[in-house]
Each structure stands twice: as structure tokens, then as C-alpha cells.
Design a protein around this nucleic acid. Sequence first.
DNA 1: CCGTATCCAAGGGGATACTG
DNA 2: CAGTATCCCCTTGGATACGG
Lengths: 148, 148
Amino acid sequence: MVTTDGENAIIRSDCHTRRGLELIADQWTMLVIVALHRDTKRFSQLHAQIEGISKKMLTQALRGLERNGLVKRVVYPVVPPKVEYSLTPLGLTLIEPIQALRAWSEQHIEQAEQARVVYDQQDRKSLQDDIIALIQQRANGSLESQGR
Amino acid sequence: MVTTDGENAIIRSDCHTRRGLELIADQWTMLVIVALHRDTKRFSQLHAQIEGISKKMLTQALRGLERNGLVKRVVYPVVPPKVEYSLTPLGLTLIEPIQALRAWSEQHIEQAEQARVVYDQQDRKSLQDDIIALIQQRANGSLESQGR
DNA sequence: CCGTATCCAAGGGGATACTG
DNA sequence: CAGTATCCCCTTGGATACGG
């Protein structure tokens, strides 16, 4: 009996994939990398460019990227302060896989969101059904107690 | 004056990329997709295969994937219950970009983690320096108050 | 300008027990 | 087996104020 098995291997918590995901698998980190694609940027530029990110979250994402050698941080000792962020050579290697994700989003996100609409409609529908069934039950209950 | 500008465009909260990231950019979802790569799997199989995931988190990830049309859920009305999960055609299209991330991890994760060790060492070092400086300050302080 | 420090409300997520 | 429900702690993340 031949078991290729590769598909059923345990995805260990210390496998390369998971350690990789720990670095970038959140809502902000990949966006910061996208924003730094090609250009060096200042903190305030990034903050303005990524809609909705707070300073706290931006700082957090940048620190994580810097810590893992994906982003370089350069402080200019001037007043007012000036700090520039850029991708390191290692950080640049992430552009390709992230672009793949962006391309997927361009092509497929609408289909996924349409599926979601259908799913949520079904959800609401069965919720309604449940409520109707519940009302039926209660109605029967009061009829019974009236009957006795 | 020519401004290509493409690099400085605002990353809007409703752009395709961000809507795509909302679907999969967390610690578990992509792993579930990886686990379902090729094979249909039962809930318990997935739970066993993805080390460290709780039933709650697995359920949550699967519901999200199902909701967005990336995973198909089939319930067999038998005792004991049996539920099978598999990637939809749409879900299958995600394999490629995710494989790109896995490949990146294989190639680069060690370099990133080495950078992290260096970064953390520097952190500890400057913390030590700060403590030393603090002790110096206090020592000077007590000398001054003694002097008077 | 580029953050850090602090406070605080909201929710994430584990442990456990329970159901069909 | 495949979840759901509940409790509860602890983290997350926004708002605000402050510091270099």
C-alpha cells in the first residue's frame, strides 16, 4: 500500500510556513510592505497613505518588520524629527508573494463577496424559520394549557 | 513635471487588496487552506493536523472560509456525525499565492529570525545602558545632597 | 514630527461542560 | 463526532496626553 502522505502531514507550530506567517499574517503588516514597495517613506507619509491605520498600529507593524530585518529605519537627528523607512533586500523578497495575493484579490474578491452575500441571506432566512417555529411551539403550548 | 504617482496612491480601506486580506490575513485561515490542499478533510482531521488550533478557532476559520465561498461544508446525517470540508474552485485559486508565501518562508524565514536575534540583543544592550545611566544619575544625586 | 505612556472599553480566545 | 454555550482572563487597539 502506497501512502504519499505529504497531504496529511501535521502542520507543526514550528514549521517554516507558520513561522513565516507570524511575521506578516495580520491586517496591517502586508499593507505597510506594499506602501514601501519601491519608495522610502516617512512615518507621516505612511500614516497618511494607509487609510484608517492608527499611529499605534503603524508603529507596531513597523517595529515588527524592523525587528525581523524586513524594514530599515533611519532616524535623522534634526528638528523637527525625521524618520525614514524602507524595505531591506530581505523585505524586497516579500514583494513577490504579496503581489500574488494582491493579484488574487483583484481577480477573485468580488466573487468571494458575492458568495458571502448569499451565505448571509441564507443565515437570515433560517433564523426567520427558527423564529417562526418557536412562535408555533409557543402557540401550541398555550392551546394545550387552555384545553385542560 | 512628471509624477508616476502609482506608489504614493492612498491604500483605501475598500481597495481590493484590503478586502482580500480581510478574508485570509490571520494566523489560522491560511493554514486551514493549506491543510485542505487537495484532500477533503473531516473536522477532527483538521483539528489533529493543525497543531495547537482549538476547536473554537478552527470552527471560526472554517466558517469564515465557508461564508466567503472558499470552502465547501458537507454534513452527513449519520451517528456519530460526520462533516467534510473541501476547497471550492474559488478556494483552489488561493493555493498559488499561499504557496508563494510558503516558498518565501522556506527560503527566508531563517534569515529573518537571525535578524530578530540581533535586534533583541541590541534591545537588551541599550536597556542595560539605560539602567547603568540611571544608577549613575542616582549616585550623583546622593553625592550632591550629601555635599550640602 | 515621531513617537511613547497611560487609560479604558471591547473583544479575542482558552477551558470546560453540554447537545444532537 | 462535531460542534455550541458559558465563563473568564487577558490582550488588543483606540483616544488622549505628553516627551525629545
